[in-house]
């Protein structure tokens, strides 16, 4: 598939900036204070292309903390809970949809 890293950015709903942490590859999200968090609930959510580009630009200036930052869709529930916006992001957030061997 075309990687989210290669897709032209067109924001039509709520999005966050996500990446993989350099040291261990863990999935992280850009937080309001400019740090990276594993907790999607505290990620900065924006809803316009300029805002997403600004967030991404700030994120990609960091060359050591994370790898491959990109803009990912999220859903906001009526209680303003932030959920991953598609299956790929759900899997990145929650892990494989199948039991890991020996742990099923």
């Amino acid at each position: 598939m075309t990687s989210p890293l290669q897709q032209k950015l067109k924001v039509t709903g709520p999005v966050v900036v996500t990446a993989n942490r350099l040291g261990d590859g863990a999935v992280v999200y850009r937080a309001a204070d400019g740090t990276w968090t594993k907790d999607l609930a505290v990620a900065v959510v924006v809803t316009t292309t300029p805002a997403a580009l600004e967030l991404l630009a700030a994120a990609t200036t960091e060359k050591v903390a994370v790898v491959d930052a990109y803009v990912a869709p999220v859903e906001l529930t009526t209680q303003q809970q932030v959920l991953p916006g598609n299956l790929r992001e759900r899997i990145r957030s929650s892990g494989p949809t199948v039991a890991l061997p020996g742990q099923g």
Binding site: N20, D24, G25, A26, K63, D68, I91, R92
Partner: peptide, 20 residues
């Protein structure tokens, strides 16, 4: 990362969805 990526790939290291 641009410099490192080809080096890690030469050693069988990919970055996947959750981890290396």
């Amino acid at each position: 990362e641009e410099e490192f990526k080809p080096l890690r790939l030469m050693n069988g290291v990919y970055l996947q969805l959750h981890a290396y």
